[in-house]
Design a binder for these strands. Sequence first.
DNA 1: TTGAAAGCGGTACCAG
DNA 2: CTGGTACCGCTTTCAA
Lengths: 334, 334
Amino acid sequence: MTQRRRPTIHEVARVAGVSISSVSRALNGNTSNADMLARVNAAVQQVGYVPSVVAQSLKTQHTGQVAFAMEDIGNAAYLEMVRRIQPTLRDEGYRLLLHSTGADVEDELGVLASLSQNYVDGLILCPLRVTDRHVEALRRAAVPVVVIGLLPDDVPVDNVRADSRVGARLAVEHLAEAGARRIAFIDGPLDTVPGRARYDGFRAGLEAAGLHGDDALVRFTDFQFEAGRRTALELLTEHPDVDAVLGANDLIAMGVLHALRELGRDVPGDVRVVGMDDTPLAATSFPALSSVSLGSADRGRLAAELLLRRLDGDDAPPERVTVPPSLTVRESSR
Amino acid sequence: MTQRRRPTIHEVARVAGVSISSVSRALNGNTSNADMLARVNAAVQQVGYVPSVVAQSLKTQHTGQVAFAMEDIGNAAYLEMVRRIQPTLRDEGYRLLLHSTGADVEDELGVLASLSQNYVDGLILCPLRVTDRHVEALRRAAVPVVVIGLLPDDVPVDNVRADSRVGARLAVEHLAEAGARRIAFIDGPLDTVPGRARYDGFRAGLEAAGLHGDDALVRFTDFQFEAGRRTALELLTEHPDVDAVLGANDLIAMGVLHALRELGRDVPGDVRVVGMDDTPLAATSFPALSSVSLGSADRGRLAAELLLRRLDGDDAPPERVTVPPSLTVRESSR
DNA sequence: TTGAAAGCGGTACCAG
DNA sequence: CTGGTACCGCTTTCAA
């Protein structure tokens, strides 16, 4: 492991017998002299030269990097986003930096502030909560930012959002059509972006389906399996007449399935269950879980595309894109 | 969005009425003059100065970035790794870059080669296959690399590995103890690092358990749910006497559970099932899936720690760490 | 077309 | 302790 210093453009120039300017030109396709090109390439091969992206960045004021910040990459929805964001960016030559902020609002703000260090050309942010300080930080962000999630109208950044309203309505309408009348909802924390949006969506869904909502059938807990299970056990014990449960994500819904099994209730015979996010869990569970896809993958891809457009110099007004949800019906509600 | 040029150290120096050297010193804690410190800080506040990490990187030859490259972040095992790698690195001030190589060997080699661009200080690599070219590339890597996975002994890089042998043995012994005699194994591709290791582990496990192996009960497919399901259907139809199945990962094992259900076989009554990786799928499935944890989270953390040590200048001989597996028994094999 | 030279924004050595 | 300055490695004007 002899750590010989990496060759610089000067070595190449010396070996090729030309100036560093010529080497730079040749490497960047700004030479018409074929002979020059050949000599430079030969020298590059000989010394094993690879340009330093750091030096290039300093000169060009452009890092070739983009950051993606979300609460926890362990969350299936965010995971789906990264999986699309990364290739989309890479195809355009950008590297992806990951920031898991761990549900820490300070950390989210820290990421926003750190943009001033100019270590990335842009940011895709998936905030768990949007406070005034977020809005302020977004306003003065040093580089283009695309936010995935709900955002006040007057914040001047590109924005990709899911349509939780329609999503929840799809679920509720589907359940109602199947004959459900007492539809319960187990949501995540109401003070998070997704928790709030899904709650509003659920209410709207009930209304759209012409059903009378009952607040006693709505619970707030964490977006987790165990939380869903425990909450469902409580809920179903207190209200045995519930004939359908919507989980705010697939983990919660899986918890509901388990709770129902423990209570000896049949799914979908006695109670129908639908989840949200349509993660791999849904397809592999038993019974297979119906789930509303909020288009995480599409949101990720769109966010990346919007950002790329900005990085390309587009200075059109901030755009807002809403991704339509879709319901996949499986055994749990058939 | 007025994109005013970001202030440089020169602005700060001018405002503070001192030299840029003094500003740099003050900012890096190399000043003893309290007055100087105060003036500089005031100026920093006033102009809103934030140092450019790019310029710092160029000067210090150190980027503060580390890359993690694996096949697909969507794979639960890799996901667990990232979740530990990121915080471990961040605590030491490093940012994390993600490279999903998508099962493309060329891409893996590309990542290794790109290290010469010096955009990161180190790399954690989880190769799907290890070819001679990998070994060669690892030898001449421009920055420290830690490999997670099996590696020939003579490759001089830090290495963290799982113990698939013991892992599979745990599973097989557990199944044998429970009374299983015809234990089948559905593996991933044999020419991948994990596929090979788990196969060897399974064979060793049978032997250790004093069981006679039957090649007809071993199948190779993809590390996926549907692949597992289809393969299990075939296998179980051809060999109805199979009384236990080990899946090379939880997805495959979930597929096996589904197949058994379709065939009307009881789990664990007729057939016991065990998976590997102990992902969230295992705990939430029905029946809950027994699974061998190969310590993905620990491997990730250890890899990050090894790398940090290297980045800290440690030039001890390459280290190899093996993480012990552990079996969590759940309903599917109880 | 080619080479010299001026930065990009910092760090750190060296002299005062 | 402070300021001047060289330099990190590259891109890009500007003259020749």
